[in-house]
Amino acid sequence: MTSKKLSRKALTIAATILVAIALVYAFWPQPTRVDIGTVSQGPMQVTINEEAHTRVSELYVLSAPVSGRLLRLELKPGAAVVQGKTLVAQLLPNPLDSHEITQGQARVQAAEAAVDAALAALKQAENDQYLADQQARRNEQQARQGALSVADNEQTQVKADNAAAAVASAVAMLAMRRAELLNARAALAGSGSDAPFKAIDILAPISGKILRVMEENEKVVTAGVPIVEIGDVTHGLEVEVELLSRDAVQIRPGQPVQISNWGGDEIIAGVVSRIDPLGYLKTSALGVEERRVKTMITLPSLPASASGLGHGFRVDVAIVVWQKTSAIKVPSSALLRENGDWAVFVVDNGKAQLRTLRIEKNNGTEASVLQGLQVNDPVILYPAADLADGMAVEQR
């Protein structure tokens, strides 16, 4: 009987101990499972990223010089043209009536008289310059000998400079008058009886490719109607991007640009060439009104694989506003705010240790650290709100 009581008591004690151990194990604090990253060292950049599009830097819109019948165009988009040689279009000008002929002849006579007057003004300006230069040389020699004051000599030199400027102005005026004469004569191109059968040849103004044909079929057009667009997509391609105004103020001409998502795997290098000083209002796809600024990017060279790029193609640009060749980098997902400062949780001997940092730059993916971390320090990524300093943690 006594042995049975002892056995029952031992079993009870053992069961109690096992239950106590199970309870302690169940309620013992377990390490919090977290994602852990590593502090690294290497190059880092801060960029402004936007969608953009390519464009031809010098786009020429070829228009009808006079009213008339435009003959059918044979060239198609993509056709190569040579400056001053390739026949782009032909136009049969409308014949002029007697009143228009009289007016055109009067304009030609007025333009010819203006050219004669400009020639006379140029001759007079050249004579004045010759006399002013001669006087300036004589006064310069007298000033060196002390026979003329410095003020008088300087006044003579100024008169010589003014005379040279007058000659340049007269040359420009003569060129303008001659251009007016050419326009007046061109307006009379259809005055003859054979004008309906004499077509005006419209040649390519630059070498490049036909980008778009606006008037392909034969039709009657008025003067100034666009016919084709021509541009050099091989050597004259650039990128236009519309930046938010708050981003545009950080950009300077000469900053490097990385161009991607153009259809190839290579990154095309570009350079910021111009930031427009005028901002404008634009509504985004989400219906938000934004202030935008146009920025131009030049492409010093294109890889052979990008030969298919043309005018108006979509690309992505990343404008580099800051870069460092050897930065101590921490993942941006590890950062949190602590009393107005940046901080991270560093894993030290299985415990989370809160550490305040001094951040230099943050590009949204990585942050450059000036103080507070060392290379290869393990840090907790996406720290939870209830994570506290000193808590036990383990890799998830």
Rank of each mutant, 00 (worst) to 15 (best):
S7R: 13
R8W: 08
L11V: 05
I13R: 03
I13A: 06
I13L: 11
A14R: 09
A14H: 07
T16V: 09
A22M: 05
L23Y: 00
V24A: 04
V24K: 04
T32H: 01
R33G: 05
D35E: 07
T38R: 10
V39N: 08
V39F: 10
R55L: 02
Y60G: 00
V61Y: 00
V61I: 03
S67H: 04
L71A: 08
R72K: 13
P77L: 10
G84C: 03
K85G: 07
V88T: 08
V88D: 07
A89Q: 04
Q90E: 15
Q90D: 12
D97M: 01
S98M: 04
T102K: 13
Q105R: 13
Q105F: 03
R107P: 08
A111E: 05
A113V: 11
A117D: 15
L119W: 14
L122M: 14
K123C: 13
E126D: 14
N127L: 14
A132P: 04
Q142Y: 11
E154I: 03
Q155I: 10
N162H: 09
A163L: 06
A166W: 02
V171L: 02
A172M: 00
M173L: 10
M176E: 06
N183V: 03
R185F: 05
S193K: 14
S193L: 12
D194C: 01
D194T: 09
K198V: 09
K198W: 06
D201I: 01
P205D: 09
I206H: 04
S207K: 06
L211A: 03
E215H: 06
K219Q: 15
I230Y: 11
I230A: 04
E240G: 02
E242L: 09
A248T: 13
A248V: 10
Q255F: 04
P256N: 05
Q258F: 10
I259M: 02
I259G: 00
S260T: 14
N261D: 15
W262M: 01
W262R: 01
G270Y: 01
V272A: 03
D276M: 04
L278C: 08
S284C: 10
A285I: 12
V288K: 14
R291E: 14
R291W: 11
P300K: 00
L302D: 02
A304Y: 00
G308V: 01
H311S: 09
F313A: 14
R314Q: 06
V317Y: 04
V317M: 05
V317Q: 02
A318K: 10
W322P: 03
W322D: 15
T325L: 11
I328K: 05
P331I: 09
P331L: 08
L336S: 11
L336H: 11
G340K: 10
D341R: 13
V346D: 01
D348P: 03
G350M: 04
K351D: 03
A352C: 09
A352L: 06
L354Q: 13
K361A: 12
T365W: 08
T365G: 12
E366G: 06
V369C: 12
D377I: 02
V379D: 03
I380F: 12
A384I: 07
A385L: 10
A392F: 04
A392K: 12
